[in-house]
Nucleic acid binder design. Structure first.
Length: 348
DNA sequence: GTTCTAGAAC
DNA sequence: GTTCTAGAAC
């Protein structure tokens, strides 16, 4: 049998044991060292299933508890797995969850089932490399050696590592691509530009910082300059690489909840003429508010010091298909593609 | 992120 | 019958 530990990411206190299938209520208390009045004394109800490798998280308090960036909502319950991040309240007091073999019970493995959830969970569980189960700062440098001359890991890499375990190894693909000279279109001391491997339009580049920034939520005010630089580089790439840059409309922005780890700025022409654009998720990720303009991200950082993704953003991916230029509704992807031929430059 | 495929929609 | 989508698996 495994045991489950809830680990304070900023080391506020020692890990809290969550016994198998036992309800544990946490909140403002000496146990968590949280004194913030916004945090209820009974903020969350947690129940670990050590066999299946997840914990149920129920928000009891009024103020938002979140798992990754998604707010749970009072009375609601979500599952949280190894690698995901729980914020006790108001995006504060981060925790991760860790399942590991009970050291006091090692002999019981004979005749005792391993974690036995669905196949994918089993794989994810076993993929977790030893030593990464409890994120530690000393392990930062073992991750992802960047090719740039200024590879400055200013944040613990644990978030990146955990994301791998949640989403699979494929989610780390950009880290390899950005290092691959064959993919690189441009690089300087701060950023690299690569072609999107599966472009969703005639022109589709990704601008990535050498600095390891796992996601939008890792960004802080100090990144504003870097993001402005990414924008300038993107502008330059468009001018250099696109002969009809004057006619063709481009947008630069970030996916609110990207699948791939490592912050990347999409630079994409608005023709959306591509065999790789295949489904509703592809379309809506570039044509709804799921796509956050780069300028908007920078403004958020300047104003609030962080990037906030609105609740329900994931639902935008399920919206009906709608032309990004004229707003016409189309019922299928093939019909949409046919319609797009009437807007070859992505503008009216 | 993509691929694969069952089954819904036509 | 074919086309298309959506969800699981990776």
């Amino acid at each position: 049998m495994s045991i489950c530990l809830l680990i304070s990411k900023n080391g506020r206190h020692k890990p809290i044991n969550l016994p198998h299938l036992q309800t544990v209520v946490l909140g403002r208390s000496p146990e968590t060292t949280i004194k913030d009045k916004k945090c209820s004394r009974e903020q969350v109800e947690l129940k670990a299933d050590c066999n299946k490798g997840y914990i149920s998280v129920k928000q009891l308090g009024v103020n938002p508890t979140s798992v990754d960036s998604e707010v749970v909502g009072k009375g609601n319950q979500v599952e949280m797995r190894s690698g995901q991040q729980l914020h006790m309240v108001n995006e504060l007091y981060p925790y991760t969850v860790c399942f590991k073999e009970d050291p006091s019970n090692s002999q019981s493995s004979v005749g005792t089932k391993r974690p036995c959830g669905p196949a994918s969970e089993e794989r994810e569980f076993h993929r977790e490399p030893p030593g990464h189960k409890v994120p530690r700062k000393t392990e930062d440098s073992t991750q992802c050696k960047h090719g740039g001359s200024t590879s400055t890991n200013t944040r613990p890499e644990s978030q990146t590592t955990e994301k791998t375990e949640t989403l699979g190894y494929w989610s780390q693909g950009l880290k390899a691509s950005m290092q691959d000279p064959k993919m690189q279109v441009y690089k300087d001391d701060r950023v690299v530009v690569i072609m999107d491997k599966y472009p969703k339009a005639h022109y589709h580049w990704l601008v990535l910082p050498w600095e390891s920034i796992p996601s939008l939520k890792t960004l802080h005010r100090g990144h504003c300059d870097l993001l402005r630089h990414m924008n300038q580089v993107a502008d330059r790439i468009v001018q250099q690489q696109c002969p009809d840059a004057g006619l063709l409309h481009f947008r630069q922005g970030y996916h609110a909840i990207p699948s791939m780890s490592h912050v990347h700025l999409h630079v994409i022409s608005q023709d959306f003429d591509s065999p790789w654009l295949k489904n509703k998720k592809h379309w809506n990720s570039f044509t709804t508010d799921y796509f956050i303009e780069s300028q908007e991200v920078i403004q958020m950082l300047e104003k609030d010091g962080k990037v906030t993704v609105k609740q329900g953003t994931n639902e935008l991916l399920k919206l009906p298909l709608c032309c990004h230029v004229c707003g016409m509704a189309l019922s299928t992807i093939p019909q949409l593609k046919e319609h797009l031929k009437s807007h070859p430059y992505g503008r009216l």
